[in-house]
Nucleic acid binder design. Structure first.
Lengths: 227, 227
DNA sequence: CGACCACTTGATGACCGTCAAAGAGTGTGG
DNA sequence: CCACACTCTTTGACGGTCATCAAGTGGTCG
């Protein structure tokens, strides 16, 4: 999991040939799609990893829980992203649909059988795992050493790069963002308000969760506020 | 980097055949060793990744810096660990010898040439990257959601598993531990004192940085304090 | 339209960071 | 070998950032 392949990704990695592995091996690969309603679980932590997933529509959050309910979201998976891949045997996160979400499935078994003999596929998997690693490593710096405004700014920059449209319609709630950034939802809200007052962004329209970035340069600067 | 292969690792992964890749490919692999003095840099972030390293003696820290000096240590590499591997092109961390350290080097170029044709090696690299990923993912939960005592307990449990001797002689300073855990050195010191008063551990002998775990069960419980 | 959920904003407090001082350990040079 | 300098560590006092608790507004959907 943690595959964030839309970000700075080479197209062929982003799609893993759109799961068209059959073309390489000649094996019959069953392509399935499942639609999940808002809030439903795709798989749970420690469950055997039977499938790999690609988001066709919607958005997914993957997270770990502590026994008292504290939650750390590891990644958001948007349209095009592949996740559940780096989990060898058992899943290391729980995955949930944030909104109504359609996923493409591929049997892990199939993928592994192909990878056993096909070095190109194995290298592609390695490349995806490395990309994955980069994101988590950067996120570690954020969680360990950045203050609340820097964290929220980093989140916005990341989302801005990924959705790449004038107005960001974020699927996730303030609580999701907070659990991604290691904050509380109130702190996220305050940071957003602060940035709005500073003219970095604005909330758009009648609907919630629509944000427009007004000043990308200053937003990026806010990610590394303290000089 | 971030290769923490001594922990729960299968021996063949830990050593990658002790870098004896020549035996697979028949290629001439130059094996070099370099010794670094305490505090010296092995490589810097964003430098081209020319080599992969294995710790033969000593200990290494890998970290990222923010412009104002805030530091996040990603991993400590102890004897046997391989690091600098997941950095494709450029290193994503800076690596420094914590104490006098001897490293084995292998040219990345050689490794990649072998991996291009040898699927077994590629799979091994993938396996190491995945192991790597697991550690970072767990660390993300720690940095995002655990309090100071839980963090220090987690650190001690991790080190206890890796050094596996009665008395832990830690190579790193309180500041290193703090920068690994996203805390300050004072907070680390207070957490250790608190655990000592609670009878979980003790400081040993005249020399600093020697810790003995008195109650592993309660130490593990402290890692998930709040129930 | 009403119930519910998401969000914002304020008040308060706790945890941890900062600043400071002193003790302990280490290394070096006379 | 001891003295001195330096680093590392501990502990205390204080303050700030963010978590917690709470209330009210706004949006969504049956």
């Amino acid at each position: 999991m943690f595959l964030r392949t839309t970000r700075n990704s080479k197209p062929h990695i982003n799609t893993l040939d759109d799961f068209g592995i059959a073309s390489h091996s000649g094996a019959a690969v069953s392509l399935n799609e499942i639609t999940y309603r808002k809030g439903t679980e795709v798989y749970g932590e420690k469950e055997p990893a039977e499938y790999v997933y690609q988001v066709k529509k919607g958005a997914v959050r993957t997270y770990k829980l502590l026994s008292d309910g504290r939650r750390q979201i590891g990644a958001f998976h948007l349209v095009g992203d592949i996740f559940g891949l780096a989990d060898d045997d058992a899943h290391r996160f729980t995955a949930e649909a944030i909104i109504e979400t359609t996923l493409r499935l591929i049997k892990r078994q199939t993928l592994e059988t192909v990878a056993e003999t096909n070095n190109l596929i194995t290298r592609e998997l390695l490349s995806m795992a490395t990309l994955n690693l980069k994101h988590v490593e950067d996120h570690m710096l954020l969680l360990g050493r950045k203050d609340s405004v820097e964290r929220v700014a980093a989140f916005l920059v990341e989302m801005d790069e990924r959705v790449a449209s004038q107005v960001m319609a974020l699927p996730m709630t303030r609580r999701d963002i907070a659990d991604y950034l290691g904050l509380t939802l109130e702190t996220v809200s305050r940071a957003l308000s602060k940035m709005r007052r500073a003219g970095l962004l604005d909330f758009v329209g009648s609907t919630q969760r629509k944000i427009i970035i007004l000043d990308r340069a200053r937003l990026r600067a806010a990610e590394f506020q303290r000089q």
